[in-house]
C-alpha cells in the first residue's frame, strides 16, 4: 500500500464549548443557586483530510451539532482551536474571514427552515455568490444558478418559484445547490436526510456522493443514523455527552468496534436483514448533560465499569488504525 500522505484540511484541537444555562439573575439570587454551565463539547480532537468524508455520530446531547456550528464559524469555541487550511476559524466578518468563507459551506437538517420562504429559489441559490462577491455580473449569476439547479437534478425554470412549491427532497436539493454556489471545498452536512423519507433519503445520499466524486468535495457528515453514516463515511467518530470516545475507519468501526458505547450503539440498530446477528440488550438512558457522571461519562451504562472508570476521565489511545478512550480496553479487560 502506497497511499499518499493524507493532507488535513481541517484540524480541530482541544475543542470545548460551554453554554450558560443558568436561570435569570433574579431567580438565582432568590433561590441562592450558582450559575450553571452545560459543557456541550469537551476536549475534542480530530482532523479531516482532503477529499474524505468524516462522520460524527452520536445521540441527543452528544454535541455533534455544536461541533458543526463551530466548524463553520457560527459559534465561537470556549476553548481550543479550529484550523481550516492552516487558518484559524473565527466568527467575525473581517476581510480575511470573508476570503476563508468562500471555501466552506453547510447543509442543514430541515429542508423547511433552511430556505427563506419569502425568497425565490434563484435568489436563495445566488445569495452566497453575491454576498461573497464571487460572481458580480447579473447575467453570469443567472447562468450559474441555472447550471446548479440542473446539477442537483432540478430544472432551470425552478429558479422563479418559491420554496413552498417543492417537496422536502426537492428543497434539500435546493439547499445543496446553494451550498455549492460559492464553489466550496468543504461542506458540513448536519443530519441532511433525517427529515426525509427513506426513498428520498436515498436520492439525496446518492446525489451527495456523486457531487463529491465530481467536484472533489470534503464532507463532515453529522448523523444519528449508523447505517447512513456507514454508507457515506470513510472515517467515523463516535461522540457521547460531548466527548469523542472513538474514531476509526468506517469498515473497522463496524467490524471491530473498540469502545463499549460504540458496541452498544451497533447493538441498538434493528436487524433489517434478519440475519439473526447476535445482539446484546441495550440498557439505560443518556444522563442529563448539565450534570454529567464523573470520570468516564459512560460508566453508569457500561457493563465493564469499575472504580477507576468512575474516578478518572479516560484519554484517547490508539488501537489498530483507530483511537478510543476507555480504561477497560486500555487495561485489556475487554478483548
Amino acid at each position: 500500500m502506497n497511499a499518499p500522505m493524507p493532507e488535513p484540511l481541517v484540524e480541530v484541537s482541544d475543542l470545548c464549548r460551554e453554554f450558560d444555562v443558568s436561570k435569570p439573575w433574579l431567580n438565582r439570587l432568590i433561590e441562592r443557586e450558582p450559575k450553571q454551565f452545560l459543557r456541550a463539547v469537551d476536549n475534542v480532537h480530530f482532523n479531516i483530510n482532503k477529499g474524505e468524508t468524516l462522520a460524527l455520530v452520536g445521540e441527543s446531547g452528544s454535541g455533534k451539532s455544536t461541533i458543526a456550528k463551530m466548524l463553520v464559524g457560527l459559534l465561537e469555541p470556549s476553548q481550543g482551536t479550529i484550523l481550516f487550511g492552516g487558518q484559524r476559524m473565527r466568527t467575525d466578518t473581517s476581510a480575511e474571514m470573508q476570503v476563508l468563507r468562500k471555501r466552506f459551506q453547510m447543509i442543514f437538517q430541515s429542508p423547511y427552515a433552511s430556505l427563506n420562504p419569502r425568497w425565490r429559489v434563484g435568489e436563495v441559490i445566488a445569495e452566497p455568490m453575491t454576498v461573497l462577491a464571487i460572481v458580480k455580473d447579473r447575467r453570469e449569476i443567472q447562468k450559474r444558478v441555472d447550471e446548479l439547479l440542473v446539477l442537483v437534478g432540478l430544472s432551470a425554470a425552478d429558479a422563479r418559484k418559491f420554496p413552498h412549491e417543492f417537496s422536502g427532497g426537492q428543497r434539500q436539493r435546493i439547499a445543496i445547490a446553494r451550498a455549492l454556489s460559492a464553489n466550496p471545498e468543504f461542506i458540513v452536512c448536519d443530519e441532511p436526510t433525517s427529515a426525509l423519507d427513506v426513498s428520498v433519503q436515498a436520492q439525496i445520499l446518492n446525489l451527495m456522493r456523486d457531487l463529491q466524486d465530481e467536484l472533489g468535495l470534503t464532507y463532515l457528515f453529522i448523523s444519528h443514523d449508523l447505517s447512513v453514516v456507514r454508507h457515506m463515511a470513510n472515517r467515523i467518530g463516535v461522540l457521547y455527552l460531548g466527548a469523542l470516545v472513538e474514531i476509526a475507519d468506517s469498515k473497522t468501526l463496524f467490524s471491530n468496534p473498540v469502545h463499549p458505547y460504540t458496541k452498544m450503539l451497533l447493538d441498538a440498530v434493528p436487524d433489517l436483514a434478519m440475519t439473526g446477528r447476535e445482539r446484546k440488550r441495550v440498557e439505560g438512558e443518556i444522563p442529563n448533560p448539565i450534570n454529567p457522571p464523573t470520570g468516564c461519562t459512560f460508566h453508569p451504562r457500561c457493563p465493564f465499569a469499575n472504580e477507576r472508570c468512575k474516578r478518572e476521565v479516560p484519554l484517547l489511545k490508539a488501537y489498530g488504525t483507530g483511537v478510543a478512550s476507555c480504561h477497560a480496553v486500555e487495561e485489556g479487560r475487554i478483548d
Binding site: 417537496s167 422536502g168 427532497g169 426537492q170 427513506v198 426513498s199 428520498v200 433519503q201 436515498a202 436520492q203 445520499l205 446518492n206 456522493r209 449508523l226 447505517s227 447512513v228 456507514r230 454508507h231 463496524f254 451497533l266 440498530v269 433489517l272 436483514a273 440475519t275 446477528r277
Partner: peptide
C-alpha cells in the same frame, strides 16, 4: 423501498433510489 435503506452489513456504492416523490 427496501433497496433504498442503507445496510449495516452489505457493501453498496449506490442506494436504490425511487425517482420522484
Amino acid at each position: 423501498l427496501m433497496g433504498s435503506i442503507p445496510s449495516l452489513t452489505q457493501e453498496d456504492d449506490r442506494l436504490v433510489q425511487i425517482p420522484g416523490a
